[in-house]
Structures are given as C-alpha cells and as structure tokens.
C-alpha cells in the first residue's frame, strides 16, 4: 500500500483542493470567532445588525467552552460537506480524468489503491480539524475569551476532533457514489441529498439513528435539551463508514469497468 499512498499523496500535493478546503475551514474559524466577538458585547451585536441578530440566535456563550462548542458544530455541518467533497474528488477524479483504468491491472492491488485513498482522506480530515482547532485557539486567545481552563479547552478540542472524525467516517459512501457514478456529478447529488436529509431527520427527532445527523447531534447542534446520539448513533456511524469503505473496495475489485 506504500506505493499507492505515495502516488495519492503526490496527486493531492499537486492539487488546489487542499488549499481550498483549508481556506474553507479557516473561514469557518473566523466566522465562529466573529460570533464570539459579537456575543461578547451585545451593544456591538446590535451595531452589526443582521449578523448580530443571528449571532445571538446561535445560543452560544462568548467564552472558551462556547467557542469550542461552536467550532465543533461548524465541523459537524461544514465538515460533512467539505469531507464529502474530498472523498468525491479522490475517487471521482480517476473517472473524470479517465485515469482509473491505469489503476486496474497493476502489481499494486485495487484494494491497496482504495485503502490509500481512504487513508489520505482520513489524514486530510484530521489536518483540517487540527487547522480549525489551531486557528480557533489563536482567535480565542486574540479575543481574550473568558473561562479558560486547560482541561476544559483540551476537552473542547477533543470534542471537536471527535466530531470531525464522525463527520469524516460518514463520507465513505460518497466515495462509493463517485465510483459507481464514474465521476463527480452523481456523488455531489448524493452529498446534497444526504446533507438535506440529515437536517430534516434531525429536526424530526430521529437524528440519533441517521448516521449523517449524528455528528451534528454529537456536537450539540440541537441545543442542550437534546440527548447526545449515544452508542447506537456512534455505532451506526462506524457501521456506515465501514460499509462504505468495504463496498467501495468491493466495487473496484468486482464491478465491470466497461467505461
């Protein structure tokens, strides 16, 4: 798998997508920081008009626990979209660029190629989450947010990273969609459908049993009154991730590559 890992890493390094996704996460950290900035002073919030109004509606508190919770919610919602796009790009590009065929009859197995792509996706997700956490800590320090405690912040960062992990794991079926759809288009459609369904199902109160709603619930996006997803929800996320990865590897190995 080392060879496939090297090849995937080179392709990622030569792409603009890591920079674009990094920028998206940086913007998320800045927007959450702006929310904190506004919430810290209600008068300033009114001066910001609409943005101030929305910031107050977020229910977040302008302190370290509140900021880190907001960042975790951002990664739960935005992460599904961004991580989903990463998975779709990693697999879909091979079909859009018609390079998939060059990966099918090699000493390096197709399973190794698929595993390398998922490993790159996992590393990419981790780096983006670390970027968000790092920028969050920097912005929080610049804003001089109250209620700092090392254990509290460590727990908040851990929560953020765990949310990112849950969001990333749910994207493996999108790799399958990009493979079966032999390109980006169908998989992006699936991504939009999943994001939409996650919102609706969570709003209906069944988010704990819908894997793509679980990261948001875990991040506390439904508010303090909502129970966290629990073992069942997390287990469903793990099962979905594993099923997506196994099905993708199976498809690459067994499907007719007639196009």
């Amino acid at each position: 798998m080392r060879e496939a890992w090297w090849a995937e890493l080179l392709k990622v390094r030569r792409s603009r997508l890591p920079w674009i996704t990094g920028l998206a996460f940086a913007i998320a950290a800045l927007v959450c920081g702006m929310f904190m900035f506004i919430l810290a002073d209600p008068a300033r919030a009114r001066a910001f008009g609409l943005i101030g109004g929305k910031a107050q509606l977020s229910g977040a508190s302008a302190d370290w626990p509140g900021y880190l919770a907001l960042l975790a919610q951002a990664v739960a919602v935005g992460g599904l979209g961004i991580y989903g796009l990463v998975a779709i790009w990693l697999f879909g590009r091979e079909f859009s660029d018609r390079t998939a065929i060059d990966l099918l009859a090699l000493p390096t197995s197709r399973t190794a190629v698929v595993a390398a792509k998922f490993a790159i996706a996992a590393l990419w997700a981790l780096l983006l989450a670390l970027l968000l956490a790092g920028l969050g800590l920097l912005i929080g320090a610049l804003l001089d947010l109250p209620a700092w405690s090392a254990p509290g912040v460590a727990a908040g960062v851990g929560h953020l990273l765990a949310t990112a992990g849950l969001a990333a794991v749910t994207t493996t079926p999108l790799a399958l969609a990009a493979s079966i759809g032999r390109g980006y288009l169908a998989a992006v459609g699936v991504l939009f459908a999943v994001i939409f369904a996650a919102q609706v199902i969570a709003a209906l109160g069944y988010g704990a049993v819908f894997p793509w709603s679980v990261p948001g619930l875990y991040a506390g996006i439904a508010g303090p009154d909502q129970d966290p997803p629990g073992i069942l929800g997390v287990g469903l996320v793990a099962a979905t991730g594993a099923a997506g990865a196994v099905a993708t590897a199976w498809w690459w190995n067994r499907a007719d590559h007639a196009r």
Partner: peptide, 9 residues
C-alpha cells in the same frame, strides 16, 4: 482506449 494522464502532474 483514449490516452489519459493526471492533468496537474
């Protein structure tokens, strides 16, 4: 079939 390569490489 058609020749292909990673365009950004």
């Amino acid at each position: 079939e058609a020749a292909a390569a990673y365009p950004e490489l």
